[in-house]
C-alpha cells in the first residue's frame, strides 16, 4: 500500500444515507479476478440516470466522496473500495461508515473520514454552492478542512500509522510469528481440521 498523508481536491456531494455495497458495485462486477478495472461499475445502476450527481461534469475529477450515514453497508466485497479508488476517490467523508467497508478502506489507503453529521452537511452545502471548492484531508492531524470550516475525525493511532507509512499488514504480523506458534501449540485437540 502507498503511504497517504494528505488529500487535497474537489468533492462529490453524494449525500445519501444507507448506500449499500450492491449500489457501489453491483454483483455482476464481482466476477473479475483482478483488483483493478472496477471504475466503470461504480454506482452503475444510478449512473443510468443523467441527473445522478456522478454524471454532473462540474464534479469531474473529485477525489473526496461526501456520503451519508451508514455508507458501505451490506456485503464484505472489497470491490466497493477498489471501484471508488479506480474512479479517482481517495477519501470518503460520512457521519458513519459500515464496519467492514471501513476496514476494507483502511487496507487500501482509501481514507475513511467519520465526522459529525453537521460538518458533513456543511461540506455538502459548500460544494454544491461552488463545485470547485477544494477540500483538504490531513491524515496525520485527522482534520478535514474547507474554506471557513475545520473539523476533526476519528482515526485510531494504529490505523493512522498504517496509512502514513503504507505498511504491509502481513509483514507486520509475521514479525510476531513466535507468538502465533506459541498460541497454536496450546489449542485444544478437539478443534476441527479439514482433511
Amino acid at each position: 500500500m502507498e503511504p497517504v498523508r494528505r488529500i487535497v481536491g474537489r468533492a462529490l456531494p453524494l449525500a445519501r444515507a444507507d448506500v449499500d455495497t450492491d449500489q457501489i458495485i453491483p454483483s455482476q462486477w464481482l466476477k473479475r479476478l483482478e483488483r483493478t478495472g472496477y471504475g466503470p461499475g461504480l454506482f452503475e445502476a444510478w449512473r443510468k440516470d443523467p441527473a445522478f450527481v456522478l454524471n454532473d461534469p462540474r464534479y469531474d475529477g473529485a477525489v473526496v466522496l461526501l456520503a451519508g450515514a451508514n455508507f458501505g453497508s451490506g456485503s464484505s466485497r472489497e470491490h466497493a473500495v477498489w471501484a471508488l479508488l479506480d474512479a479517482g476517490f481517495r477519501a470518503v467523508v460520512a457521519p458513519r461508515l459500515a464496519d467492514i467497508f471501513r476496514n476494507n478502506a483502511l487496507r487500501n489507503g482509501l481514507v475513511p473520514v467519520e465526522t459529525d453529521a453537521d460538518t458533513v452537511a456543511k461540506l455538502v452545502d459548500t460544494v454544491r454552492r461552488d463545485p470547485t471548492t477544494s477540500i483538504a484531508i490531513d491524515v496525520e492531524r485527522s482534520t478535514v478542512e474547507a474554506p471557513g470550516l475545520r473539523a476533526t475525525f476519528v482515526l485510531d493511532e494504529f490505523s493512522r500509522t498504517r496509512l502514513l507509512e503504507g505498511l504491509d499488514d502481513i509483514a507486520v504480523t509475521l514479525r510476531h510469528e513466535r507468538d502465533i506458534g506459541a498460541f497454536e501449540a496450546k489449542r485444544p485437540e478437539w478443534l476441527p481440521r479439514v482433511r
Partner: peptide, 20 residues
Amino acid sequence: WGIGTSEIEHVLATQTIALT
C-alpha cells in the same frame, strides 16, 4: 464475522487477524 479480500490474504498467510 465477514472480512474483505485484503483480510482474507492476511488470514491465509498468518491464520490471525488484527482487530479492535
